[in-house]
Simulated assay, not measured.
Amino acid sequence: MLVRRTLAWVVVAFGAGLAGGCGVPASKSPAPEGASKQLPEKQAGAAKNGADANAAARVPMIVYTHTLDVVVSDLDVATAEVDRLVAEHKGYVVQSEVRGDRGRWRAATYTLRIPVASDRAVRNAVLALGTPERNASEAQDVTEEFMDVEKRVKNLKEQEDKLNALLLEKRKEEKLEDIKSLMREIAQIRGEVERAQGRREYLLNRTTFATTNLSLREVKDYTPPTFGTQIGATFRTSWDAVLSAGQSVVLFAVALVPWAPVWGPVLVFALWQVRRWRAGRVPSPLLRAEPTTPAG
């Protein structure tokens, strides 16, 4: 009897020990490693996307303008190459002009619009056509103006939508005069929206395409100027100005000849009046008083 009780207590104690050693609270079980990293990764991704969105919204809007003067040996070859470059890089020509005759001094001027992505490549190719005399660039930041226009367009559209909704309500109950007044206000807002959208499109075009003012001058066997050649060029320029002034005087005199019946009598009358005036100022000898001698 005593042995049975002892064995029963041993079995109970052994079972209690197993239960105490193996039982682990569910709340203290470790979480999977992937789950612990999932939330911080999502937060980091959201923060990165937000930063990218802000950076995209703050991309600078720059208007690029270039002025290029290039001396070329063959103007026909140079102009053909300019046209090819514009077509290849999907740009367009705003204005072009060729002056002079073959065998004489000739020049060409262009106003080009080139996509900003191809701007540098086109500029380098144009400068390689000959000897650059001028290479100037200007950049204008219009980011703030563009953002203001964007906000203005958004606000005007919201105001227009509210007025249109109000117009639908007033058509059911208001007078005709009130409806007409509201329609005039809507038309005014619509005009402001279109003007703001036009300005926005203009800024987008100016920042998408760079403007290049190109001047090509044809000079056979061109060599860069030295101090001596500059002196000679200055003298020739001055002498040409003298000859041009003399030619202008001669041409003016020739142009007056057909008008001689008109200005001839006027000139004769003017000369006669001048002679009368001068004659009136000089006293006649007969009118001069003879000096009197005292008597005695």
Rank of each mutant, 00 (worst) to 15 (best):
G232D: 11
G198Q: 07
V70M: 05
S27D: 15
V274M: 13
I189Y: 06
A56L: 03
S137A: 11
E194F: 01
V219M: 13
L256G: 02
L271C: 14
P224G: 15
K28C: 13
D74E: 08
L39P: 07
A295E: 12
G296W: 08
M147G: 09
A233K: 11
A279S: 10
W277L: 10
D221H: 04
E201R: 04
H66Y: 14
K162A: 12
A241C: 02
L112N: 05
R275G: 09
A46F: 10
R288W: 08
G191T: 07
P285D: 14
E290I: 06
P225W: 00
F209H: 00
E177C: 00
R199N: 11
T237H: 15
H89L: 04
W277T: 10
L2T: 08
L271W: 10
K90I: 01
A260C: 04
S96E: 12
A260P: 04
S238D: 13
R278H: 11
N213F: 15
E158V: 03
V77M: 05
V266G: 07
S96K: 14
A121W: 12
F14V: 10
Y92M: 00
R236L: 12
A16I: 04
Q159T: 07
S215K: 12
I231V: 12
V153M: 03
R281V: 13
L112H: 08
E160D: 03
V142F: 08
K162C: 01
R134G: 08
E177G: 01
A165M: 14
G103I: 01
K172H: 11
N54C: 03
A107Q: 15
G130I: 01
A108V: 00
I62L: 13
S238G: 13
N164P: 05
N124I: 03
G280E: 08
G34Q: 05
A46E: 14
V11K: 07
T67G: 13
K154G: 05
V274I: 13
A241H: 11
L7G: 09
D161N: 11
Y202Q: 15
E41Q: 08
D148I: 10
A55T: 08
L216R: 10
V98H: 06
S248R: 10
L182V: 02
W277A: 11
A295Q: 06
D74T: 03
A210L: 01
D76S: 08
A107I: 05
A51I: 10
P283Q: 03
K180T: 07
T234F: 10
Y64I: 03
V94Y: 00
R102N: 06
K154A: 12
R113T: 00
